[in-house]
Amino acid sequence: MTARIGVVTFPGTLDDRDAARAVRLAGAEAVPLWHGSESLEGVDAVVLPGGFSYGDYLRAGAIARFAPIMDKVVDAANGGMPVLGICNGFQLLTESHLLPGSMIKNDHLHFVCRDQTLRVENAETSWTTEYREGENIVIPLKNQDGQYVADDYTLDQLEAEGRVAFRYVGWNPNGSRRDIAGITNERGNVVGLMPHPEHAVEKGFGPDSVEAGRAGTDGLAFFTSAIKGLLTLA
């Protein structure tokens, strides 16, 4: 069996092709999904990729959240389907109330684009089982509205339940509360993060690593984790 992972394209999505490529490199079939469609085409998991859906008008992800496909994604996520939101996809998950909190403009107001070190805080979600808890990984980060905010009660709850999935290491690039780079839901099937694992999946095209320039593939395990989980279920 080959796992089938859907990648949703909204008007203004940028990283759908890279996300689909990451899915294929990890060994699954990438299924393109269209924002205006009401069908998930029978996929086993969904990636909401990065970009600027609807030009970030109103708030990042605020308009895409009401796209016809999102009703299906929300239902599937509530039913336990693995859903990964990257950057704009993370913003979309918070606007859809699948994950708590929200993203506002970076505290320094600048667009950031860099290779970013993260610590894996939870290696038990659908998208992180192939990592070790406490492991540091390097993947690209690029955003303007990347400052994760939530009230203290929500933040305390996330910490207590082990739902902070990733934290920024070395430098907090956007002022996110408690250095949070990514979080998961109670069940662990929905994960959202601002940095971009799909840009670090193939040697020659990733961040610099100790091995060689552009050789970093630390993002690939997001996708192999999901695939392994799906194949175990099947």
């Binding site: 605020a62 308009i63 009401f66 918070t94 606007e95 909190g101 929200s102 905010v149």
Partner: peptide, 8 residues
């Protein structure tokens, strides 16, 4: 529902 996000 749409014009504001009650979280922020």
């Amino acid at each position: 529902t749409l014009l504001s996000n009650p979280v922020i």
